[in-house]
Design a protein around this nucleic acid. Structure first.
Lengths: 168, 168
DNA sequence: GAAAATAATTTCAAGTATGAAATTTCATGC
DNA sequence: GCATGAAATTTCATACTTGAAATTATTTTC
């Protein structure tokens, strides 16, 4: 290490100024993320009469045409099991999702999009890409690449043990 | 503008590759943010037996010692009015928050931390700073500064009309 | 100064979200 | 073959979140 006062380590307590800067960037990140999320939520509601959690579930199911087990779904989305149960219930009621028992295992359920669900999601996904591009298109490709790399660093910082991030 | 195919505009439809890159960075940002949030949530739960929404409310009240009206609180936190009502109810029940009627206005309520609430929050805030620093301290001050600037760009991209972001 | 518009909150219905407990089923050891 | 533990889901209690409707109090307008 080549900086006697610039980086925090386990041994030396970080300078108050740097701690404050960490806090600042985190609050900024949170605010920017909430801004984008709120935009997407509102557009999903207005244009497609749906919600972000439903969109997220459908996105996961769209990728895995063969279907996903409930537990796979909840770990892919990083939400609790009980949560997924409720969202799937409503999607099934709306005819967007189908539940299929798994062949050799009476415990498990395979969940997949219906044809109607796939068609609906395709439309939403196309619109979603445009919304996101309206926001992130203002960054140059180079800046975007650097941003991704910084986010990667953050995502792989410690802080918590469990889960350990397998990609979705 | 000096790039015939590198930036999206209202006139020219963005290239699919750039749209995909926008989507990638957004998903990455969402994932990193959720990672940090989950870390904070879990630490608040384990170490202080509290939740992130409660922490956020207390943080706002900590800043405004004189207290805030319910509506000021909900707009500062950018959450709905009804939401704040419930969180404050629980904080009052726990003796962390006090409700005071406003002098000249029988509709409004001033909400402020009790002494106990201030003390509790001070401890949590100190711990919170360390947690955040454990994560964001891995970025150099320079990188952090650039990250803040990028996030600023994102936050001020259009996408939605309402609210228009006055700072909290 | 009564009626109408505004403002500050709460209430409400529905949906999300969590972690823990309960259920049912499967796999193994013995 | 059965007890035991692990796996897959659901159920449950609680809390958070939203947008809209309802309530109560203030301000404006005529």
């Amino acid at each position: 290490m080549s900086d006697p006062d610039q980086r925090s380590s386990a041994a030396t307590s970080p300078s108050p100024a740097l701690v404050k800067q960490s806090l600042r960037v985190w609050l900024k990140m949170l605010k920017a993320t909430k801004h984008v999320e709120a935009t997407v939520r509102e557009k999903l509601r207005i244009e497609f009469d749906t919600t972000l959690p439903r969109f997220d579930v459908m996105a996961a199911l769209y990728r895995f045409e063969e279907g996903l087990k409930m537990s796979e779904l909840s770990s892919a989305l990083r939400v609790s099991n009980g949560n997924v149960t409720g969202i799937i219930e409503r999607l099934v009621a709306d005819g967007a999702v189908l539940r299929v028992p798994v062949a050799g295992d009476k415990r498990a359920m395979l969940v997949r999009l219906t044809h109607k669900g796939r068609e609906e999601f395709a439309k939403m996904a196309a619109a979603h890409q445009l919304w996101i591009n309206e926001i992130f298109g203002s960054l140059s490709p180079d800046t975007t690449a650097r941003l991704i790399s910084m986010l990667d660093t953050i995502e792989h910082s410690q802080g918590l043990s469990p889960g350990e991030d397998q990609d979705a």
